[in-house]
């Protein structure tokens, strides 16, 4: 950590705690965002991501700790002159027209993009005279992100920018964000989808229950969270050989006697089982949920195993159904 006046830090969060009544939304969080970074805040719903953004954008005050935005207090409007944020999709003023909203936001910034340019960039030119209440969900989202970029900000905060959009709309918005970043912009985005963070972020901060669980380059985080869940049966005599599976982070036995393994590389694991001639049957492989990945991150150091643990077996069925069948059958 460098000194408080270090200019390359766009955002500095130091030992910040924020409670809502009895709930601790953020618990002693520290984080710095450097100029030009594209940082993904990854975590399940309720992890504290949105609360963290609302402290950085000046909407809320921390209970303790300090937050600096471009070196100043985010609650001072002058600190926010180089910040762009988005309204929630449902939060646009329904009776105002698209161009009126862009105009209004543009007036807050010293050197904004012309309204026509914002509309053009987000494919909203034909909708300029439409009241925002009449836009589709995807159009609202485009406008919301357009508003974040209207003031030519140096830092953009995006809360779940493309959640719920179809694939085309999502990719169009990702392209717009990548081009903003390519021109030197700094982006902090939150998501509970690994896919979105994976598509955009270079650095990933994993947040859960108000704490930073990991803060690293995307590829490092992916190795830790992109887990696969293997489910299989083996004769009792062969159970011990499961412990030698490469990349195993968790091993549970479910009530019906199936073995549930969380592994970092399902292909390598299957090859190892085959090579060791383990007599397994009924193998299925599915993507582990982020929640499962986070649980292994908090409860076990990478590489450690929990043979025979059954307390999480009930959560198994909630695994995301992105079944990959490559090499799944012996």
């Amino acid at each position: 950590m460098t000194s408080a006046t270090a200019p390359p830090h766009v955002v500095e969060v130091e030992h910040v705690t924020r409670r809502f009544d009895a709930t601790v939304a953020l618990d002693d969080v520290s984080l710095t965002v450097r100029r030009g970074e594209l940082l993904g805040l990854l975590g399940p719903n309720g992890a504290g991501k949105t609360t963290l953004l609302s402290l950085i954008n000046g909407l809320r005050k921390p209970d303790s700790g300090t937050i600096r935005l471009f070196g100043g207090d985010p609650r001072d409007p002058a600190s926010r002159a180089r910040l762009g944020t988005t309204p929630q999709e449902t939060g646009l003023p329904p009776t105002l027209r698209v161009a009126e909203v862009v105009d209004f936001v543009a007036r807050h910034y010293p050197d904004p993009m012309p309204t026509a340019e914002v509309l053009e960039m987000f494919g909203l030119t034909d909708l300029a005279r439409r009241q925002t209440g009449g836009l589709s969900g995807g159009q609202k989202r485009r406008l919301a992100i357009g508003l974040a970029l209207t003031g030519r900000p140096e830092l953009v905060l995006l809360d779940e920018p493309t959640t719920g959009l179809d694939v085309d709309a999502r990719h169009a918005l990702w392209d717009a964000l990548r081009s903003y970043h390519a021109q030197g912009g700094t982006i902090v985005l939150t998501s509970h989808y690994l896919e979105e963070v994976q598509a955009l972020a270079q650095r990933v901060v994993v947040v859960d229950r108000g704490q930073v669980l990991a803060d690293d380059r995307l590829d490092v985080i992916l190795d830790r969270v992109a887990l696969r869940r293997m489910s299989l049966r083996v004769p009792d005599a062969a159970v011990s050989s499961l412990a030698t599976v490469p990349g195993l982070t968790q091993h549970e036995t479910s009530a019906d006697g199936r073995h549930e393994l969380l592994v970092s590389d399902a292909d390598a694991a299957v090859r190892a089982l085959v090579a060791a001639d383990v007599p397994f049957e009924g193998l299925t492989i599915a993507g582990a949920t982020l929640e499962e990945a986070f649980l292994t991150m908090t409860r076990t150091p990478p590489g450690a195993t929990q043979p025979g643990a059954t307390q999480q077996a009930a959560a198994v069925d909630q695994a995301r159904s992105t079944v990959t069948t490559e090499g799944a059958r012996p």
Binding site: L59, R80, T85, P87, T90, V105
Partner: peptide
């Protein structure tokens, strides 16, 4: 009570 109001509060205006 409207989310847009929260957004306006993040704009650089006092």
């Amino acid at each position: 009570a409207q989310p847009f109001d929260a957004y306006i509060r993040t704009l650089p205006a006092g």
